[in-house]
Design a binder for these strands. Structure first.
Lengths: 139, 139
DNA sequence: TCTTGACTGATAGCTACTCTCAAGTCGTAA
DNA sequence: TTACGACTTGAGAGTAGCTATCAGTCAAGA
């Protein structure tokens, strides 16, 4: 059994966020002790894990709740849940692709700056420099 | 020269977001025609590209504005800007790593569901089933 | 007994959009 | 000439998902 603080540490999710998720029904009911303090068990940790996973790939909380609710309905929703996982995987792969593209932009920028710094050049992008260049061309 | 609508299409960023970014100083001043309509040139498109890139890897707008402002200052900020690009690259790589981890979680889930569906089994996670299992064990 | 620390829910605030709206401009068709 | 439709503008309201603050409860230790 874990307190919310321990779960926050183990799962690397803030206590605030865990309470927010709990309040919004993103976990099945979590047990409380006699003082109303939440006590997470290992199974609850698995729920946190899947919610965290779905959030990380950008699933909105409404859709996550829907998935959780399907889980609680029982076996009749197995195929629908399976499909959600497949769709989520595709989303994650698209995001990887997107990140790769952004990395290319950053690689280009890096090379651009390295060239300027190494050769002690001026930034041809800078509007101020543009004016300067225009002046030079006009001479 | 491109209207905001064209830029939105070319860069795959909504007109709303472009106006929002512009209002918050995430682009250098953009030219307007006699009717106050924004006219983006190819250089502006490059600004949109870098802002989009920074946002995609989770940079907050304040930090993006700071980067843009550094760009406008001129060559004295080249090294600082270079460092921002390097830091951003690292952030992007961390995110890739994170996504890979989440994909593993999803792969596991996929296998889990495939097993249940193929073998026509009950979800051992379902709280309702847990009760059932407990009952069966009690028999 | 008092203090410290952990927890609680309610609520306020924040970021980054996202949407709606009234108003202005343009080209074309009746 | 006027009406229309498609486009733009800024202002401002609304939203998602946290994030932070707060007052209050409780148990354990000095």
């Amino acid at each position: 059994m874990y307190t919310i603080k321990e779960v926050a540490k183990i799962m690397d999710v803030s206590e605030h966020t865990l309470r927010f998720w709990a309040k919004n029904g993103l976990f099945p009911e979590i047990k409380r002790d006699q003082n109303n303090v939440r006590l997470f068990n290992d199974n609850d940790l698995e729920w946190v894990k899947i919610v965290k996973c779905l959030r990380k790939v950008g699933t909105d909380n409404k859709s996550i709740k829907r998935y959780i609710d399907l889980c609680l309905v029982g076996d009749s929703t197995l195929k629908e849940r399976y499909q959600i996982i497949l769709d989520t995987k595709e989303k994650a792969l698209n995001q990887m692709e997107d990140l790769k593209n952004q990395l290319e932009v950053l690689d280009y920028k890096q090379a651009f700056y390295e060239n300027l710094i190494k050769n002690n050049l001026s930034d041809p992008w800078n509007p101020a420099n543009k004016i300067q260049q225009a002046k030079e061309m006009a001479l």
